[in-house]
Amino acid sequence: MRFKDVFSIIGPVMVGPSSSHTAGAVRIGRVARQLLGCMPEQAIITFYGSFAETYSGHGTDLAIIGGLLDFDTDDERIQNAFTEAEQSGLHFELRQSTLMSPHPNFVEITASVGGRDITVSGASIGGGNIKIHSINSFAVSCTGYYPTLVITHDDQVGILASITRAVSSAGLNIGFMNVDRKERNGSAMTVIECDKRPGDEVLETLSLLPHISRVSVIDLN
């Protein structure tokens, strides 16, 4: 990954001790929270690699829970995230995996509420930066550095043209886009990084397009 500026290397203003094990973990938790769209009732958090070995000592578990509570990286409440979760009605389970992962600092989060769930896997890659690898088993690639549209839809002819037309008509510049599908004519996911946050109008326009089942926004700024 090419870092955008010196602050991407130093890391964000944060509750420590580590930009990789704490700040990055907060951001992955916030991605899951924002994709779910509300406070989760349940969460299963599975740590891999270095995260699995050191998550307790480095506060990575507190950071993930803090992110699920939508705390930012510098929120002092992260230090008491377990208590905050209990008071907010968030029940969680921490797991460790010995399976191989794409990055040493890797975590998978399944968050659920009211029978609806979201599964996000991602890595904390240094300086508080993250890379999301999958959303609901779709292979994606996004960083949360820019406001990001996450669109679940049917794999149908013309749907990508409809999506990009709606985004362009809203005055949004597409910085990066990737698409994954489960199978031909099955379910698909399109992820679009934009130069600014999509407004409610374009979200509604996208939601009303044929063959689109869900539109979400990741905005960690």
Results as ranks from 00 to 15, higher is better:
152 T>I: 01
154 D>T: 06
103 H>Q: 00
153 H>P: 08
144 G>S: 09
146 Y>R: 04
155 D>E: 06
77 R>V: 13
55 Y>V: 00
86 E>M: 14
114 G>R: 14
133 H>E: 13
124 S>R: 02
81 A>I: 15
64 I>Y: 12
154 D>A: 06
64 I>S: 10
140 V>C: 02
87 Q>H: 14
112 S>L: 09
125 I>T: 12
119 T>P: 00
97 S>T: 13
167 V>M: 05
143 T>N: 10
53 E>S: 11
123 A>F: 07
167 V>A: 05
103 H>G: 09
46 T>M: 11
155 D>K: 12
58 H>N: 13
75 D>W: 03
65 I>R: 04
120 V>H: 09
42 Q>V: 08
108 E>Q: 09
40 P>I: 00
125 I>S: 02
65 I>L: 15
67 G>C: 00
142 C>N: 02
50 S>D: 15
126 G>R: 00
70 D>S: 05
51 F>N: 10
38 C>W: 04
124 S>I: 04
67 G>F: 12
133 H>A: 00
63 A>P: 08
122 G>E: 06
136 N>I: 07
157 V>C: 11
111 A>P: 01
113 V>A: 15
100 M>F: 14
47 F>D: 08
166 A>T: 02
132 I>H: 11
139 A>S: 13
115 G>A: 14
78 I>S: 07
40 P>K: 02
98 T>H: 12
69 L>D: 03
48 Y>V: 13
116 R>W: 00
97 S>Q: 02
90 L>W: 07
127 G>I: 13
164 T>F: 06
86 E>H: 14
94 L>N: 02
46 T>D: 08
113 V>M: 13
139 A>D: 01
121 S>Y: 15
115 G>D: 15
154 D>S: 05
127 G>H: 09
66 G>R: 06
168 S>T: 12
44 I>E: 10
139 A>C: 07
121 S>E: 14
135 I>K: 05
111 A>Y: 08
131 K>V: 15
151 I>T: 02
127 G>R: 11
136 N>E: 12
100 M>G: 11
123 A>Y: 01
84 E>P: 01
152 T>L: 00
